[in-house]
Design a protein around this nucleic acid. Structure first.
Lengths: 251, 251
DNA sequence: CAAGCAATCATTGGATTCAATATGTATACA
DNA sequence: TGTATACATATTGAATCCAATGATTGCTTG
């Protein structure tokens, strides 16, 4: 904490938004808890005006919920909510892949994606996947998904995917780290990478339906990872965002 | 204009948001045009603080775009953007229908949808569809889509569909009025209503894939309507939201 | 002793003020 | 005559101030 350098380049609103989001995801603010504006002013260092702006943005982002009587509270998510968010993201990415395939992504535009694919191949090839390799995979995987999304060349769709991926547990790389400690880790990684290969191939060959289907299935890997991690109750500390999970019927 | 009664029940922010949205959709503010906060203060009657809140919300809603140097401008949409937004909404509604089917919507929950279906049947049956019947159809159709969305029983999905339908030209009833004056009007209405019937049947029979497919195709009717209306250049005045359309390469 | 009402206090929503930056214009120089 | 620079002005972003509403606590009464 205590990033008190005023960092003139970024607005107070953005700074407050980042600080509050961090507090929410790391569990500093519990789900259901009402957020005090005054308290937020203290912890973020910004004034009340930018804090309120940040609260509005976080509500639109889906992390906060407006209280009818005024103010905001941290939203609580059920396991079902998270699984649905993943399926939703997969559906949108499937649509993006289909658009890319049907509209004929040019070879020039496909190039960065194929390079990314090759880089991922390098990482996945070595058998005992090191900690750093996993971390690098997370980064490259995020890049792959971002490139694929852009390949749809559809501004409205890109926008929606970004919004859907904003929830950390719905993002493409949300649960990769969770699996890193599982025995099935390498297996899952290989399968995921095969999906990547297939979607690129499908786009190249203009197979829209195939591209769409594989991206949907690809997202379900994340759902499997989540369930595995939750059931084995191990290394949940790798997933700070899980502080937002709450069983449906809790105050 | 001039709703100056202070209507204490609703917040200034909401009032400003509604007023600005109206100005945008009716073309009072042209796409690409920078929105002056002072001017907005004048036209909406609210102070600068709620006006700025409203601007942030409208940006998240997708009607505005942030200017890097500060402030907001009205977003411009291409015809392609609108068609994609419709396809996107159809995809999401398809997912909702699939969820409803696969998870077994109870007979009790299906009841309101079937009633709505029956009401729509009444409206569609008469051959020369009157102006009022069309208007009633728009309302009932919106209700049908809302009920179907809720039937998914998935909060994240409902949220996303609402967001996607917020753009007026992507909403389920966005282009129904546009077709009302076309010669094919009744035909299209009958086909749309058949889609409604099919999706209810599919959900009842737990046919997830069928339910999903028909909702996707259903949305494409809206795309057809839009293209017909644009090509025939007739009755575009029925679609005020089209003020936002602009060819890609315009200042 | 419990329940209801009233009063005080805290907290949010809105208004105004202040400062910093971006934009536009005019002038001067090349 | 065109371009660049400097200055003036307008506009946004932030902070403080004010008002109104909702919550909490204590007191009174049944």
């Amino acid at each position: 904490m205590a990033e008190r350098e005023t960092d003139r380049s970024v607005s107070q609103t953005v700074r407050a938004q980042l600080a509050l989001r961090d507090q929410i995801l790391t569990g500093g603010l519990r789900p259901g808890e009402r957020i005090s504006e005054l308290q937020a002013v203290e912890t973020t260092g910004a004034s009340r005006t930018p804090v309120r702006m940040a609260l509005v943005r976080l509500e639109e982002e889906g992390l906060l919920e407006a209280i009818p009587s005024g103010g905001f509270m941290v939203k609580a998510f059920s396991e079902r909510d998270i699984l649905d968010s993943i399926e939703l993201r997969g559906t949108l990415e499937g649509l993006a892949a289909r658009f890319a395939a049907e509209r004929g992504a040019s070879a020039r535009n496909l190039e960065p994606l194929k390079e990314c694919l090759a880089d991922l191949d390098q990482l996945v090839r070595r058998d005992p996947v090191s900690e750093e390799a996993f971390s690098a995979y997370v980064t490259m995987n995020a890049r792959f998904h971002a490139l694929l999304t852009e390949l749809s060349a559809s501004a409205p769709l890109i926008r929606q995917i970004d919004r859907a991926s904003a929830l950390p547990f719905a993002s493409p790389s949300g649960f990769v780290m969770a699996q890193s400690k599982l025995p099935e880790a390498h297996q899952i990684l290989l399968i995921a990478q095969d999906h990547h290969r297939i979607v690129v191939d499908a786009i190249e060959n203009r197979e829209g339906s195939r591209a769409e289907a594989v991206m949907r299935e690809h997202a379900r890997l994340a759902a499997r990872n989540l369930r595995l991690a939750l059931r084995s109750r191990t290394h949940l500390d790798l997933l700070p965002a899980l502080a937002l999970i709450q069983s449906p019927g809790l105050a």
